[in-house]
Computed example of a mutant assay.
Amino acid sequence: MSVKDLTQPGASKVFIIANEAMVRGALEADVKVYSAYPGSPTSEILDAFAEIGDQLDIKTEISTNEKVALETAAGAAMAGLRAMTSMKSVGLNVASDSYFSLGYTGVKGGLVLVVADDPHAHSSQSEEDGRFFGPYAYIPMLEPSDPTEAKRMVKEAFDLSEKYEVPVLIRTVTRVNHQSGIVEFEPLNRTPFKKVPWPHAPTRFITVADRARRFKANMLVRTQKIRDEFEQSPYNFVLNPGAEIGVITASAGYNYTVEACRIMDVKPAILKLGTTYPLPEKKISDFIKPLKKLIVIEELSPFLEHQIAALAKNINPQLVIIGKES
């Protein structure tokens, strides 16, 4: 699509890939700073911001590496501006030192990280599963399955980030990043870029010793509040309730599930998850309680399967779980 389409100020419907949809979501959220280091399958995000940054008064930087990119965006968010970065999953390895500290210190303005895994290693050196970065850093994680969700999740992630003063991770995979679809654009309400004061005490973002322990206590409380909110998220929904066989899936796995069910002409109950950290444990428990058999469909590691199996031991001990390890 053209830059003109991506930056049109009014509401419309546009055929775009998910990477471009996430750019539009950030524009609608009035993002002010974007920094990144190029890496497939997120390259189109950086390409778009590099082309439209000056036009929409967005401070855009092609950084030396992913750590510098994250720190640039984080500095803006600490000051109160909305900021975004994107990278492939192995790029978050490079940025992980700063990333884990941000889970402790938090931010003031919205900070969104788009991190893309590459199942089948189409353009990467490994099939790393980046989902573990969510729980390991106590940073909330959303997973879109199509361009429409990608745009909406990025836009809403800025609000979520500011509400809980924490970065938000948008985890994607290649088959989502490069998926095309018709996406509804909402009007752009851009505001001018302005310098903001630094209102914090000198030690606000220092995390060490006693301060780190206090940050950790706050992280635990924050995570539970986010979990409670995710229980009501429209991104977690059930199809075909009442069946004895169920499927739990997320991301591109949901698309594969729907297509397979159509081809085989079967209708199991399906719980599609869009918020994968913290997991909506009550919603999952309610879904698996009446089932006789559950299929967990996910790419890469058994990230969902392990957590669901742990819940099932108390909720439905007789449940037969079919996944990567069972």
Rank of each mutant, 00 (worst) to 15 (best):
N19F: 10
E231C: 00
V221G: 03
E44F: 08
T203W: 15
I284R: 00
Y164T: 06
F132S: 13
A243G: 08
D54V: 02
A21Q: 08
G246H: 05
A310T: 09
A137P: 13
L70M: 12
V173N: 05
S96C: 09
I288D: 01
N189F: 09
F158I: 07
Y277F: 15
K282F: 00
A243S: 15
K225H: 14
Q179Y: 11
S2C: 02
R82Q: 01
L142I: 14
T64R: 15
S123W: 06
K32D: 02
I58M: 04
L27E: 02
T276K: 04
I182L: 11
M84L: 14
L102R: 12
I206C: 07
D57V: 03
A209N: 11
Y104Q: 12
M78E: 09
I245A: 06
P147T: 05
T275H: 02
V94W: 05
V33C: 01
L6C: 02
A48P: 04
A201I: 11
S126M: 11
G75D: 03
T7A: 03
E127V: 12
G110V: 10
E149M: 12
A312W: 07
A18H: 03
S89K: 07
P147V: 07
P147F: 13
L142S: 07
N255H: 12
A269Q: 14
P119K: 11
D228E: 15
D30T: 01
G130V: 06
F205Q: 06
E156I: 03
F133M: 14
P38L: 10
S96K: 07
I17M: 08
A21D: 03
E325R: 11
T72C: 14
N314H: 14
K195L: 11
L294Q: 05
I288A: 01
A269F: 02
F100L: 15
P234M: 08
M141C: 15
F215R: 14
T223M: 14
A209T: 05
L102S: 01
N93R: 05
T148W: 10
Q232Y: 01
T172H: 08
V320L: 13
Y138F: 15
